[in-house]
Computed example of a mutant assay.
Amino acid sequence: MKEANVEVEKVAVILKLLGDKTRLIMMKLLDEDTICVCEFVEIFQVSQPSISQHLRKLRDVGLIQEERKGQWVFYSMNKKNEYYGFISPILVNLPDQRYRLRELDEKGTRVNCC
């Protein structure tokens, strides 16, 4: 009985994280692509520390993973996470967000940090 409560608590934490519009859009994008912190800064027009805070919260629960390349950090969805099957249907039903990356491509700011 204790295990079920822990699982429900973890799901509640995940749903709370996904309740933030910025993190929800991040998760939709990361479900389809690997994205650098600097790209998120450009997409959302907020500071790097603010973006890093959002990403840290998602990483801390294991939903995303990071890979360092020099001084830059790239993020991707952790599809091996035990809760990916739970959040995947939510992400699938969200509107496509790839236009945000296409806008970066058009401006020439996609992966400008690398």
Rank of each mutant, 00 (worst) to 15 (best):
M26I: 10
C113H: 02
I64S: 05
V111K: 12
E103P: 03
D60M: 10
L63I: 10
F44M: 08
L30P: 09
R68M: 07
K21S: 09
M27Y: 04
V92G: 00
K28A: 06
R59A: 06
S47G: 11
Q71C: 02
C113A: 06
I90A: 02
Q53G: 13
V73F: 00
E7S: 12
I51V: 15
K28N: 01
R102P: 00
Y83L: 06
K79A: 00
W72F: 04
E106N: 15
I51L: 09
S52E: 15
V46C: 10
D33H: 15
Y83A: 03
Q97N: 09
T22F: 07
M1K: 08
Y99E: 11
D96E: 12
L104V: 13
E66C: 10
D105L: 15
R110W: 09
N81K: 00
S76H: 01
I87E: 01
C38Q: 13
I90N: 03
V46F: 05
V8P: 00
M26C: 05
V73K: 08
M1F: 03
V41T: 07
E67I: 13
T22V: 13
R59L: 04
M77V: 02
R110S: 02
G62W: 09
N5V: 03
E9C: 04
E9F: 12
D60Q: 11
G62Y: 09
Q53M: 15
P49C: 11
P49R: 12
D33Y: 14
E32V: 12
A12W: 01
M26D: 01
Q97G: 07
V13M: 10
R56Y: 14
V6E: 14
G19N: 01
Y99Q: 07
I90E: 01
M1L: 02
F86P: 03
I51P: 05
E42V: 03
D31N: 14
R23I: 06
E67P: 01
R59T: 02
C113Q: 02
F40E: 05
S47V: 02
D96K: 13
I51T: 05
L15F: 15
T22Q: 12
G85S: 09
K107S: 15
L58A: 04
R68I: 03
V11P: 00
C38R: 13
F74N: 03
Y99R: 07
N93H: 05
G70R: 10
F86R: 00
D33R: 14
D31Y: 11
